[in-house]
Amino acid sequence: MEPLRIKSAIDTPEVSFDPGTLRFCISGISHPENAKEFYTKLLVWLDEFFEKNQDKQAEPITLDLNFRYINSTSYKYLREVLRKLTVFHKKGFNIQIVWQYQVEDEDLLEEGQILLSLPDIKLNHQFISYE
């Protein structure tokens, strides 16, 4: 399966989903003109990945999130990504979420804490600050 790579633009984050390393990253600014179209690409790729990788359930998959800014529409679709990962986690996949944020950006930390504590999202996660 081919990796999913989307270069960042002024209003869209960089995406790097690598099935070889099982490291999936979304980083940068997320306020695309059409968030549904942008995030649907990620959701479709994830469906294909999990369908083709049932034998890799024990290997840890890391989703690394490092936003400088995320608007409310993107946040809604990110929630859908995390819901999908929760479904796969319930099917036996070992999934870890890493939410990175700049140390002074308490708002972004709080957004991640709220998102990852929602009742429909049950994933192992950690918050990592950086300068």
Rank of each mutant, 00 (worst) to 15 (best):
P32W: 01
I95F: 03
I61H: 01
N71V: 12
E51Y: 08
L82N: 08
P13G: 01
V98W: 01
T12H: 06
E51N: 12
P119M: 12
L115F: 03
D105E: 08
S129N: 09
D47I: 07
L85A: 02
K76P: 08
N66I: 11
R83D: 14
F38C: 05
P13Y: 02
E14M: 07
G112F: 06
S117T: 10
Q57E: 07
I29D: 02
K84E: 11
K36N: 10
I128E: 09
E51L: 12
I29K: 07
D18C: 06
E48G: 11
L63Q: 10
F17C: 03
M1V: 13
V87E: 10
V44F: 06
F93H: 09
E59N: 11
T86Y: 09
N66K: 15
V87F: 09
L4W: 00
G92D: 06
E110K: 13
D47H: 05
V98A: 03
F38A: 07
S129W: 02
I121E: 04
F49G: 02
F67I: 08
I10C: 05
R79Y: 15
E51K: 14
N94D: 10
F17M: 05
R68I: 15
N94W: 00
T21Q: 08
E104N: 09
T62D: 01
W99D: 04
T73K: 14
I114Y: 13
P119C: 11
N94G: 00
A35K: 03
Q113S: 05
N71F: 08
K90S: 13
S74W: 10
D120F: 03
M1P: 14
P32E: 01
Y39P: 08
E59D: 11
N53C: 05
L123T: 10
K36Q: 13
H89W: 06
L4E: 00
A35T: 04
T62M: 06
I61T: 00
P3C: 06
K36P: 02
E33R: 02
K122G: 08
F24W: 03
A9G: 15
T40V: 09
L109M: 09
K91H: 09
R23F: 09
L78F: 10
D18T: 02
D107L: 12
L118K: 14
I97E: 04
I26F: 00
V44P: 05
Q96K: 13
F67G: 09
F50M: 07
D105V: 05
F49K: 04
E111G: 11
A35S: 12
K84C: 04
D55T: 12
N34T: 01
Y75C: 11
E59R: 10
Y130E: 01
G92V: 01
L63E: 07
I128N: 07
Q96I: 07
C25T: 11
Y69M: 08
E48P: 05
L116W: 04
H125N: 13
I95L: 04
I128C: 02
D18H: 02
S8Q: 15
K122V: 14
I97P: 02
D64I: 10
L109Q: 08
T86F: 06
Y101F: 13
I128Q: 06
L118Y: 09
V87D: 08
L116H: 07
K56L: 13
V98G: 02
S72H: 14
K122P: 10
P3G: 09
K76D: 11
